[in-house]
Structure formats: structure tokens, C-alpha cells
Design a protein around this nucleic acid. Structure first.
Lengths: 343, 343
DNA sequence: TTTAGCACTCTCGATCCGAGAGTGCTAAAT
DNA sequence: ATTTAGCACTCTCGGATCGAGAGTGCTAAA
């Protein structure tokens, strides 16, 4: 469907006004508010065309027009163009990250907070994880009694720790010796290779190797690690969620790990780092997201360590600003990952 | 204020009915529903007394009665008696914990999930932390370039890890030697004692000691570690939160770390492990919690490692069941802490 | 002290109505 | 061939009205 220039203009203006005011926008209003040099009747004619094209609809006969999901999609993909944050906003965000020091946990929490605040919606950030983990180093530390802590360092610097309860107490000396042996054997190996070693070693080491394999597998899962959320209450402020039932349905998505897992695997894995993916109204696939939009991106170093971040809000969201924010924060976090690994 | 037996009965029945149906309960209804052998007029007379005593109120002239916050407090503290979960429910919960293995992270996530599900409200669980941390052991592990991982084990088995960026790359040998020295020096020392050592050592060790002190301090803070939440959307299902504004206000409390910090320090520190604290309607102190109740408890081993867990829901909640659940889950987690430390 | 009877009060939902906003169509103007 | 003015028509929304229903408080009798 190809639209004329004037139709594009009108569609864009309807978007703008509706996003601002959350109310159907009529032809007269449009002409007055934006000082158009054409008459409201002409606008009406164009609106009829846009409605027939499926980009606008009327909530009821003789109300103004409202964008359809298809309309939002057209706007985002064809009409909006590349947007960017104001330099001043960028500086402000960068500054906050600068002040957060070098703690990854802080960075991710801050990223979630900034996304939520900038987009006035709910945000989500997953911790970065290695894509193809290789063994680098292990430490085994006695804590108390039969409980020992295993700290596993993978290539790229990802760290995974896990408690292990042994069959009987073992001295720190023996643990250290075991760790040293494993460090020698397993250097640079993948999970699969390590799994193959299991039958060849003694009982104590078998337990540890199994745990190592398990952790390495987990690290390559999409949603293995921590999930940071923020701004969940923001969506409650949107008029489209004035009815709690809708708000509940939308937010439940955020709570359920299983759903997020599904959402992320089916979208993000087809997105490359740097790209931003926009899901509008569930895209016919996710019933639970019918009245939401989701803006997602990956960050990190492809092939090394990547994570996911995104925003969930009402369909009527300011896509330009949200997409810019998501992209910018993703870039910042990518820089962090680079710094961590290549320093 | 001392109530007669019949007044107590009526108050309890009003509670019960209101908690079930969320609607003002009238004298006639009460007599019919519970098969009372007294007339509705008598019930009305008693209700007048209960209203004057401040335990009941009328939303408007000539509607039924609704419990006041004071009424809930009296009910919880004087009337309710000790309640307990059904043995079957207990078994079900224990079984779930049993299946979760020995991963602390899983336990806490599960605890939050069970609390949320049982109480149909929002739940909160903080990771256990040491009360008076003493140094036990340190490992310093080179990851990549100038980034090193410090793993600190404190008495009682609490583990804290932190990344540290050195001024320049240092080999794993030197790091290991340094760690060995520190292990010898700092054995059993408190944060204060370690802080005193800082000026006496060389630059590399100063950085590390400072980080150790910081982490040990953090570990004794109430809200240092992870916070697990669940069931946030449950409260959206309650009719008292049908207006999103109210829901928003209530849930914001859950999002803000600063608020939780305040809430926990001012309540939990005066609660002993095993005890359950009930805050009804903000207790005049927390404006944000005006239409909520919070049921809190501590778990763990006093003087060693403790954490907090609790539930946030509408004032009209089933206190008996919620309190029983919170107590039971707290006890389970306490057992976990005992197991971790004294095994 | 308890209870039956009764008048009174207040909410809630349904219904109705008029104002306002916006449309679609037609016919005239460009 | 477009654009526009004019106009009748439609639909929502807020306010007013009203009756049913539920529950109360009071009084007088049991």
C-alpha cells in the first residue's frame, strides 16, 4: 500500500496527537492544532482513505480517528525515520553510568532504572552471558563442614558460583589440589568436552565436573542469570490500563520467567546487536501482549557475551523516544562488556 | 476496651464475612448466614457498641458495617488466636522445597513464589546476611587483564564476591601469594579491625583491604543483597485496588529500595526470629501503605545470619492464613540457614 | 434484656436528555 | 479533477432523575 505525501503527513500528525493526548483525533482539531493550510473536509477525505488502508479506525461512528496496530507498524517502519536522543539527555545518562563505578550489578540496575524513567514504562534487563562458554579457571573453597563453594571463571570473564555439598568433609588442601588438576586438564574446553571427561576421574572430581558442565550449560541459556526490572508501576499510570484487569494481564508477562524465556528466545535470537526490535500489540503471537508494545534490543559482543534489554508499555507509546533510548542504553552496556573483556 | 463474649463473636463474624466478600455486612445477613439464635435487632445493638468502640464503621448511613483498622488490629492481636496451616498444605510446601535442591537462590525464589501464591498477595524475601561478619577466607582470581575477582568468605559461610579493577595487570601467582598473606593476617577479624590494617600495607593490598571492609559492612546492612519479589500482580486482582491510582501507590513501595530499607529497619529489627509482625494500614507511619497490610518475619539464626520475608496485600486479608504461611516459610528458611552453617 | 415493627436514609443501577464533537455526503467553487 | 463549504445525522458523555433494595435506629411490646 503506497500512501501519498499528504496522507503520510496526516497519518504522522494523527499519531503525534494521539500519542500525546490518548484521545481520538478529529479532522477539525488536526487542522487547527497544526495550522494546516487545507480544510478539514480534505483531511476527512484523506482519513477515509487511511481508514480503508487499515491504518486508522474509529472507536465509534462519529468519533475522531485512532491509529490501528497496522498504522503504528507503518509509522515505525516507514514513516518515523532514524531518531536519536537529545545530546543533553545522552550526556545525562552517560554521566549516571559514569558515577555508577565498575560494578556490573549496579550498571544493570541503573540501565533498568533509566529505561523505565525515560520511557515511562516497565523495563527489563538481563545480565550478560557468554554465548559459547569455555572453561578458564576454577577455585574450590571450603566454607563450613561439607559445604564448599565452587567459583567458575569462563572465557570472557563471566563468573559463575555454585554451592556444592560433598558426601563427607574434605580439607582445603585437597580441594586446592583438585582445583589445580582441573585447571590443568580443562583449560579452554567446552561443556561438551568436559562432560566426556566425567567417567575417567574419581568420585569427588565427578561431582565437581558435573556441576561445571551444568553451570556452563546454564550460562548459554538465554535467561540463565539475573533479570532486572524497573518501572513496573509506570504502566499503571497509562490511561489504557485504567482497568486493572488489563494492567494485570500485561504485567503478569513480566513476572513469569517462562513467558519471558519464550518471548526472548523467539525474538531476540533473530535480532543482531545494535538492532532494535519492536513488537506492537503482541503481533498476533502473544495474546497476553494484545494491548502492549515491546521494544527490545541485545547488547554486548556477539559471539562472546550478550544480554537483552527492553521496555514494555502501552501500544500508544512514543516509539521514537523509546527506540532511541533502548538503542543508546544498549550501546552503553555494550561498551561495558567490551571494557570488561578486552581491558 | 473490654468486649463481651457476644460482641467478640459478632466482630469475628463480621471480619470473616467481610474478608470473604469485600462488602459491608448487615445485621440481617449476619444472622441468616451464620444461623445465629439471636435476632438482627440484637445484633444491631451490639454493632452500635462495636462502632462506638472504634472497631467497626459504616461506609455511609444505612449500609452494613465494615471493620476499621483498629478492628483488624484487635482481631489479629486478641481474637484470632494461634492459627496454623493445614498439615496437607505444609506437606505440599515442604515437598516443593525438598525438590528445589540445595541452591540458596532457588530456595529464596521458591519462598517468594509460595508466599505470593498462598496469600494471593505480593511477597518479598531478602537474602540472608551475616549479622556480625568476621573474615574467614579470601580468594583473588585473575579473570581478564586488570579485572580480578575477589571472593570473600565470612564466618557462617556467607560469600560475597566483587570485581576489582587494578591499576595494572598482575599475575595469578602474585595474586595467590597476596591472598595467602591476607588469609593469615585477617583470620577471624571484624571489619573495623581490618580497616585499621590498611595504612600498614602496600598499595595493591590497600585496594583489596578497602574492598573487603566495604563488603563486610554491606553484609551487615539490612538490604545489602538480593531482594526476591513475586505475586506483584496478585494485588491488582483485589477489588480495593480496582482504582489503578491506589494500586500504583501500593506497588511503588515494592519497587523502591529506599522505602523497603526504611520499612525493614524500622520494623524487623524489633522483631525476633520466629515472631511475625503485622502492620495494618501503615500504622499511621507509612502514608504509602494506607490501604495495605504487611505481614513480616525474620528467618535464620539470630546473631549469625538472618533475612527477612513478608507479604503485602490489602488490609482486608485473611490474616490467619497469611500469618501461618509467613511463619511456616520463615521456619523452613531458618532450617535452611541452619543446615548451611552447622552441617 | 431482647425483639418485632416501622419509618427513614442512602447507594446503586437504569433511564433519559441535551450538549458537543465529529462524520459523511452533496453541491458548489477552484 | 480537486477542494471546500454547508448541513443533516450519529454517537458519546455527563448530569439529573427515580425507584428498588438493603440496612439502620428508634420505639414499644414481650
Amino acid at each position: 500500500m503506497n500512501l501519498g505525501e499528504r496522507q503520510k503527513l496526516i497519518l504522522a500528525l494523527v499519531m503525534r496527537d494521539y500519542i500525546d493526548n490518548a484521545q481520538p483525533v478529529g479532522s477539525k482539531t488536526l487542522v487547527d492544532k497544526f495550522g494546516l493550510t487545507i480544510s478539514s473536509a480534505t483531511v476527512r477525505n484523506e482519513m477515509v482513505a487511511l481508514t480503508e488502508a487499515g491504518f486508522l479506525r474509529q472507536p465509534h461512528t462519529s468519533a475522531g480517528r485512532v491509529p490501528t496496530e497496522e498504522g503504528y507498524r507503518y509509522f515505525v517502519r516507514q514513516l518515523m525515520g532514524q531518531t536519536d536522543l537529545a545530546p543533553q539527555t545522552k550526556r545525562m545518562i552517560s554521566h549516571q553510568f559514569y558515577q555508577a563505578g565498575q560494578d556490573v550489578d549496579h550498571w544493570l540496575r541503573l540501565a533498568a532504572s533509566i529505561l523505565a524513567h525515560q520511557s515511562q514504562a516497565a523495563s527489563l534487563v538481563t545480565a550478560p552471558h557468554l554465548e559459547k562458554a569455555r572453561f578458564k579457571h576454577i577455585e574450590i573453597i571450603s566454607t563450613l563442614g561439607r559445604q564448599v563453594l565452587m567459583v567458575l571463571v569462563l572465557t570472557g570473564g563471566e563468573i559463575r558460583q555454585q554451592m556444592l555439598t560433598l558426601a563427607e568433609p574434605v580439607s582445603q588442601e585437597i580441594l586446592s589440589t583438585t582445583a589445580a588438576q582441573l585447571n590443568q586438564f580443562c583449560e579452554g574446553m567446552t561443556a561438551v568436552a568436559i562432560a566426556a571427561l566425567v567417567p575417567q576421574v574419581e568420585a569427588l572430581e565427578q561431582d565437581i565436573l558435573n556441576l561445571i558442565v551444568e553451570e556452563m550449560d546454564l550460562s548459554s541459556a538465554v535467561l540463565g542469570g539475573e533479570v532486572y526490572r524497573d518501572g513496573v508501576t509506570n504502566v499503571l499510570a497509562d490511561p489504557e490500563f485504567a482497568e486493572v484487569g488489563l494492567a494485570r494481564r500485561a504485567l503478569r508477562v513480566f513476572e513469569e520467567r517462562a513467558f519471558l524465556q519464550d518471548l526472548l528466545t523467539r525474538t531476540i535470537l533473530t535480532t543482531n546487536v545494535g538492532g532494535v526490535q519492536v513488537l506492537i500489540g503482541g503481533e498476533g503471537t502473544w495474546e497476553e501482549l494484545r494491548e502492549c508494545s515491546v521494544v527490545l534490543s541485545r547488547y554486548g559482543v556477539p559471539g562472546l557475551a550478550t544480554g537483552t534489554l527492553g521496555v514494555l508499555g502501552p501500544i500508544r507509546m512514543s516509539y521514537g523516544h523509546t527506540i532511541s533510548t533502548v538503542r543508546f542504553v544498549a550501546d552503553l552496556l555494550s561498551d561495558l562488556v567490551v571494557e570488561l573483556n578486552l581491558d
